[in-house]
Design a binder for these strands. Structure first.
Length: 543
RNA sequence: GCUCCCGUAGUUCAAUGGAUAGAACGCGGGCUUGCGGAGCCCGUAAUGUAGGUUCGAUUCCUACCGGGAGCACCA
């Protein structure tokens, strides 16, 4: 349909000898200006030497009637608008199947996505929650485009934080590892020497007791994270550890003296040659920094699962750092480094009170999640769900993920706890509710023996639903190319809102259009479910 | 000081260079026992300042004002 229009429009321009640069043909929102619009007349007006609205009329007269188009008109500063026939709208809805929203736009490509990246022995904090929500959604969007995706998680299992956690655990064995770390971090200044001794022992493996505690802590931390991943709906294909990337990184740095240079005893990369700044890759003590380890990671990833594109999701405080690391990588392994892409997200701030790790009064990602689950239990217990406990988890995860994914990923997020808990408008639970309601209507129709049967819309309410349903693939595509899940979140919210509005306006059951409206409702349910799935959010059928 | 990101209703966010800047929360007013009221309807209110490019600027460019992040052995 839209392709036919595009061809006709470009054809008309060609006939007139006009350039087609910048011409768009696209679906538009709302019925006020039709369903599809083109800016062809405005873009080509200058070359044609006539006012845009006049050229619009000329072009319009050249377009013959098109199957499925009811009306073509020129409007505003020179848009040419096309309005679909009800039959065409009905056909579009009838074509909505279980996999609506998937495509093959990235078929055949291999994409590795690294996200979440918590450190064993430490807390799972809010930044990890953000990285996880964003990374998981990008992974799902990429899969929906037909690419094969490899989910990677990179964790710091060595370094100064380990000694702090081990020391804390030795003081108070009953503490969880994250708490033990917090204790060790707080007390570091006061017990610097003891903790540094532990650090050396971890490093040279000279103390069997410390070694055993280290292995236990690493294992328990990872198992604990695994439980959180299950709750969040994430599963990783592979875990990379700093203990593996460090030696590879050191070898890469030492193997390329032409790229790095000595400075004050450390090995650095002069980023100034790339318009950046100098960074240390190996300290004067001979230990690799994060920079060197990340070089090793690039190589290790490629050896583990060769990819066409390798994405890393982190907080944007690492943006400048990453550029320098990547610039150095470009000189060592240009083909691999060129495929590396860094996606950064903002920080989360809580509207009430600030987070301070110094005072020990930290709200971790985990505690926030647990708090939300607790809060959701009240409503869930009054719900129609078969498993209220599970529903409370689904709602809590939806609330926090939607809050993260509803806005552009680059900006800081102000997380308003009270608002997320209210579970009202413009939220994950709001969309879930609309979906559950739609499922309920379809089920009620089935119980009355009504078989959903797609048909051309016959009211403004039905047309509005059909029109917004049609826009889903475009919203998904936009999210995919920009790696911006919020386009899907915004769409899901708009669809839920439009559906709720229609629901309040027209009845499905008991109307003479029950079969058609049941089909429309089923299409809404499928689309909402698929949209939520792309966001990594569960779509319960009852709540 | 240098580099990067960001300034949109009271608040939190949208708006591939397009048409009347769109939602949510808040506030005010409504929703006849009716498929699920976590809902619906009506009202309220915004592009930091000054220039520039363009047929058209919230969007691109410049300056200023305001906020955030980063800038050598931490991750």
């Amino acid at each position: 349909m839209i392709d036919t229009i595009r061809q006709r429009v470009l054809g008309a321009l060609g006939e007139k000898g006009l350039p087609a640069d910048g011409v768009t043909v696209e679906f538009i929102e709302g019925a006020a200006h039709g369903d599809i619009t083109t800016n062809a007349a405005m873009v080509a007006a200058k070359a044609a030497g006539m006012p845009p609205h006049e050229l619009a009329r000329v072009l319009m007269s050249m377009l013959m009637s098109i199957e499925g188009i009811e009306r073509i008109e020129a409007a505003g500063p020179g848009f040419i608008n096309f309005t679909l026939t009800d039959a065409a709208l009905g056909d579009a809805v009838a074509a909505i199947g279980e996999r609506y929203g998937t495509s093959g736009s990235q078929a055949g490509t291999r994409v590795m996505i690294e996200y979440t990246d918590p450190n064993p022995f430490k807390e799972f904090h809010i930044g990890h929650l953000m990285s996880n929500a964003i990374g998981e959604s990008i992974a799902r969007l990429t899969e929906a485009a037909g690419a094969s995706v490899f989910r990677a998680n990179y964790e710091g299992d060595v370094g100064p934080h380990v000694a702090r956690a081990l020391w804390g655990k030795l003081q108070e064995p009953e503490l969880a590892w994250g708490e033990a770390y917090a204790l060790g971090a707080r007390e570091y200044e006061a017990h610097k020497e003891e903790i540094d001794v532990i650090n050396r022992k971890v490093y040279d493996q000279s103390d069997p007791a410390i070694d055993a505690l280290y292995r236990q802590g690493r294992e328990e931390s990872l198992a604990h994270f695994e439980a959180l991943y299950a709750l969040l709906g994430t599963r990783f294909d592979h875990y990379f550890f700093e203990s593996e990337t460090a030696p590879i990184g050191v070898a890469l740095v030492e193997g390329h003296p032409e790229v790095f240079e000595e400075s004050d005893g450390a090995t650095v990369y002069r980023g100034e040659q790339d318009g950046l700044h100098t960074r240390v890759f190996i300290t004067r003590d001979g230990l690799p920094t994060y920079e060197a380890k990340d070089l090793g990671l690039i190589r290790l990833k490629a050896d583990t699962w060769p990819a066409d594109s390798s994405i890393t999701v982190t907080a944007n405080e690492q943006q400048e750092y990453f550029k320098v690391m990547r610039a150095a990588a470009m000189r060592i392994m240009p083909e691999l480094a060129a495929a590396v892409r860094h996606i950064t997200h903002g920080m989360m701030r809580l509207s009430s009170g600030k987070m301070s790790s110094r005072t020990g009064d930290v709200i971790t990602g985990e505690s926030l999640l647990m708090k939300l689950i607790e809060a959701a239990k009240g409503r869930a217990s009054e719900s129609k769900a078969d498993d209220p406990e599970q529903l409370a988890q689904q709602i809590a995860v939806a609330a926090i993920k939607f809050q993260i994914l509803r806005q552009g990923i680059g900006k800081d997020i102000v997380f308003d706890e009270a608002r997320a808990l209210s579970l009202e408008g413009d939220s994950g639970p709001y969309v879930q509710y609309a979906h559950a309601r739609a499922c309920s209507v379809v089920a009620a129709a089935a119980a009355e023996g009504i078989e959903p049967s797609p048909a051309a819309p016959a009211s403004d309410g039905e047309r509005a639903i059909a029109r917004i349903l049609m826009r889903f693939p475009a919203a998904v595509l936009r999210a995919q190319v920009a790696c911006e899940p919020h386009h899907v979140a915004q769409y899901a919210n708009a669809l839920a809102s439009r559906y709720n509005s229609w629901y309040a306006q027209e009845r499905v059951l008991g109307s003479d259009r029950a079969a058609a409206r049941a089909a429309l409702t089923r299409a809404v349910a499928r689309t909402l479910r698929n949209a939520l799935d792309l966001l990594g959010i569960e779509a319960p059928e009852k709540m």
